[in-house]
Simulated assay, not measured.
Amino acid sequence: MKVVGSINMDVVVEVERAPEAGETVLGSDYRLHPGGKGANQAVAAARLGAAVEMIGCLGRDAYGDTLYGTLRGEGLILDNLQRVTQPTGAAFITVDQDGQNRIVVSPGANAVLTSARLPSDLERTDWLLMQLEVPLDTVRMAASRVRNGGGRVVLNAAPATVLPAELLEALDYLVVNETEAGELLGGPAPADFEQALQAAERLRGADSTTIVTLGDRGAVWAAPAGSGQVEAYTVAVVDTTACGDSFVGTLVWALSENEPLEQAMKLANAAGALTATRAGAQPSLPDLNELRRFASI
């Protein structure tokens, strides 16, 4: 499996409530956690046993040094992780007393992951996982190359943006949350399972599958062979950071292990719920033993 995506240092502050416009609130001491949607999803899959190559860019700075060491410690293949002159990407995150987060991302080095920096052997990829925290043209080119080589392409369209037709046609799986689904369709977020299923049907291609996650309400899918839904697990939420990334990384790991889609969805849903019970992005991602105990598999 290859992951083309972002690598960030997360700067996290806990607050009683998020500030209103023009307001200042006091928070906790800040904490630094390794993050970025690409890196989070790569680590999520690797902790479950997948062989994962991370393709991205880090700055030649202290954050970059720390994150490189963290990813190497997770067992990721880093042959095509490049060090650049731009500062390492960073995300600034507030977490309120209900565990809900608000995130501002400074792309930094992620913005220079151009299509020219993609590895020459990309066509030999079996599973490619991407997000939208790196340039859209890079995502489009990577998807096209892997699809032409016979590999499977998964896109977590976050943050949401208009997706070119060429990219949509190259996808095997599109994964979005309810807010992103609404943005892609130019309307409100789906409010329940029925609306989410309708959104998934509208977003999927003739030969592709679309998955819409609904947070603490579960998730739905629409595929060429049919549609379905999985209920959420009830947990005590500590921090929702990286729950979606945990879901996506686990989903692709399960699919790459030839799990049926419904079982892969259940495992992904369990991983996302388990992630919500712990603080931080990558520190909260479960390993395979934890996932098996939690999901009773």
Results as ranks from 00 to 15, higher is better:
residue 9 M to K: 05
residue 9 M to G: 01
residue 9 M to P: 05
residue 9 M to R: 04
residue 9 M to L: 15
residue 10 D to P: 13
residue 10 D to W: 06
residue 10 D to Y: 01
residue 10 D to H: 11
residue 11 V to E: 11
residue 11 V to Q: 08
residue 11 V to P: 07
residue 11 V to L: 12
residue 12 V to F: 09
residue 13 V to H: 03
residue 13 V to P: 04
residue 13 V to D: 05
residue 13 V to N: 04
residue 14 E to D: 15
residue 14 E to G: 11
residue 15 V to E: 00
residue 15 V to S: 02
residue 15 V to R: 08
residue 16 E to T: 06
residue 16 E to A: 14
residue 16 E to Q: 14
residue 16 E to R: 08
residue 17 R to P: 03
residue 17 R to V: 02
residue 17 R to S: 01
residue 18 A to T: 00
residue 18 A to Y: 03
residue 18 A to F: 06
residue 19 P to H: 05
residue 19 P to I: 04
residue 20 E to C: 10
residue 20 E to P: 01
residue 21 A to P: 01
residue 21 A to I: 07
residue 21 A to Y: 03
residue 21 A to F: 08
residue 22 G to C: 11
residue 23 E to C: 06
residue 23 E to V: 01
residue 23 E to F: 02
residue 24 T to P: 04
residue 24 T to E: 09
residue 24 T to D: 08
residue 24 T to H: 07
residue 25 V to T: 03
residue 25 V to E: 05
residue 25 V to S: 03
residue 26 L to C: 02
residue 26 L to P: 00
residue 26 L to N: 01
residue 26 L to F: 06
residue 27 G to D: 02
residue 27 G to V: 00
residue 27 G to N: 01
residue 28 S to P: 04
residue 28 S to N: 05
residue 29 D to W: 06
residue 29 D to E: 15
residue 29 D to Q: 15
residue 29 D to P: 12
residue 29 D to T: 12
residue 29 D to G: 14
residue 30 Y to S: 15
residue 31 R to P: 02
residue 31 R to W: 01
residue 31 R to D: 07
residue 32 L to E: 10
residue 32 L to N: 15
residue 32 L to P: 09
residue 32 L to T: 09
residue 32 L to W: 09
residue 33 H to N: 12
residue 33 H to P: 05
residue 33 H to E: 12
residue 34 P to G: 13
residue 34 P to V: 07
residue 35 G to T: 14
residue 35 G to H: 14
residue 35 G to C: 11
residue 35 G to Q: 15
residue 35 G to Y: 14
residue 35 G to W: 12
residue 36 G to H: 09
residue 36 G to Y: 13
residue 36 G to Q: 13
residue 36 G to F: 12
residue 36 G to W: 11
residue 36 G to M: 11
residue 36 G to E: 13
residue 37 K to A: 11
residue 37 K to V: 14
residue 38 G to N: 09
residue 38 G to L: 11
residue 39 A to R: 06
residue 40 N to M: 09
residue 40 N to E: 13
residue 40 N to I: 07
residue 40 N to C: 13
residue 41 Q to T: 08
residue 41 Q to P: 06
residue 41 Q to I: 05
